[in-house]
């Protein structure tokens, strides 16, 4: 799980172009949206693309995103349970 969390952090930094942010700076339990990383709705779209491209997970119900993208830890847990690649 720790390996997946680190990989996910690296991918999010790259995809969202989080300049000057390092994996260690991100608290895996902090909220991704609002506080914490302060992501927004466009970032949510980028995360949906990332999930499908890297892990083969297609989010059909947008409401799911709200739960899955709660934090890096929740996201990693969902990926570990549902990944197809």
């Amino acid at each position: 799980m720790e390996e997946l969390i680190l990989k996910l952090k690296e991918e999010i930094i790259e995809v969202l172009n989080l300049e000057d942010v390092k994996p260690a700076d991100i608290d895996e339990n902090a909220p991704l949206f609002g506080d914490g990383l302060g992501l927004d709705s466009i970032d949510a779209l980028e995360l949906i693309v990332l999930m499908e491209k890297s892990y083969g997970i297609k989010l059909k119900d947008p409401a799911q995103g709200k739960e899955i993208f709660k934090s890096i830890f929740v996201m990693a847990k969902y990926i570990a349970e549902n990944r197809t690649k």
């Binding site: 995809v15 466009i42 779209l45 980028e46 693309v49 491209k53």
Partner: peptide
């Protein structure tokens, strides 16, 4: 990507 999974930004 074959016209799929395009980045919105």
């Amino acid at each position: 990507e074959g016209e799929e999974l395009l980045n919105p930004t």
